[in-house]
């Protein structure tokens, strides 16, 4: 299996709070890896670190076996896209302008941009009449679809998604989950996703990484977690979340 993103012995703290402690992991190419754990476990910090928004205190980060400080951060950024919970759309630009911003910046001609946007609206099932609307005029689900189009516009290999569906109501969330999973599979993207919802993790993940206090507790599939828990915490975490589902099912 080819390694896409390799992290070794990463330490990161903010003031006196430890966010990541001796974190090592290999994210595999074309797979969807889901980081999960209680709030403050360091999962978002890890994503921001890979996105280059923060630097680690120590440890190494390699992309395709090239250490990150050696490869140009700007050129890596062209291959990576980071999508956050509220989409991070620019409120002064229309949906179309948000999606085409970087392509315009890179000097793509209009035809190429328009063609690509049509492809993306089909892929993400975004209504074309919404392209000229501003983010404030879009629903939560539509915003996330625009955000996803923006992330896919340049055909980036890596997608980093931080609670991408966290702000959506359940029905829309469910539809988008299905669409997203299809897109990831179809486009063979290397995806690292952060969520606090185990069901979502199970739905998306080729591999789940359960974190606590800046370190990995266990990696694997949900079956591994249930059958071979590495720590009593794993069982408690799984029971707490899967238990909810059972309760809801009884009602």
């Amino acid at each position: 299996m080819q390694m896409a993103i390799q992290l070794r012995n990463i330490y990161k703290s903010f003031n006196s709070t430890v966010a990541l402690k001796d974190f090592s992991y290999n994210f595999k190419k074309t797979k969807t890896s889901v980081l999960i754990g209680p709030s403050g476990c360091g999962k978002s910090s890890l994503l921001r670190l890979i996105a280059g928004l923060i630097q680690s205190d120590s440890g190494t980060l390699e992309i395709d076996e090239n250490p990150l400080p050696d490869i140009n951060l700007q050129s890596f950024r062209k291959r990576i896209r980071y999508v956050i919970q509220d989409g991070g759309l620019f409120p002064h630009l229309t949906a179309k302008e948000n999606v085409s911003l970087v392509a315009d910046y890179l000097g793509w001609d209009n035809d190429k941009v328009s063609k690509r946007i049509i492809e993306l609206t089909n892929l993400t099932k975004f209504p074309t009449d919404g392209l000229n609307r501003y983010p404030a005029e879009l629903s939560g689900g539509q915003k996330q679809r625009v955000s996803l189009m923006r992330a896919l516009m340049l055909n980036a290999e890596f997608l980093l998604l931080d609670e991408p569906l966290g702000a959506l109501d359940p029905l829309i969330r469910y539809e988008l989950q299905i669409d997203l999973k299809n897109i990831f599979g179809e486009l063979k993207k290397t995806v690292v996703m952060v969520t606090h919802d185990l069901n979502e993790a199970v739905f998306f993940a080729d591999e789940i990484i359960l974190m606590k206090e800046g370190s990995i507790i266990q990696t694997g599939t949900i079956d591994d977690f249930i059958k071979f828990p590495a720590d009593p915490f794993v069982t408690r975490f799984v029971n707490a979340q899967l238990g909810q589902i059972k309760n809801i099912g009884k009602e």
């Binding site: 921001r48 280059g52 950024r77």
Partner: peptide, 12 residues
């Protein structure tokens, strides 16, 4: 901050 970071990560 989310908007500023989105802009940075887009590689502008």
């Amino acid at each position: 901050t989310s908007i500023k970071e989105s802009a940075i990560v887009l590689g502008l």
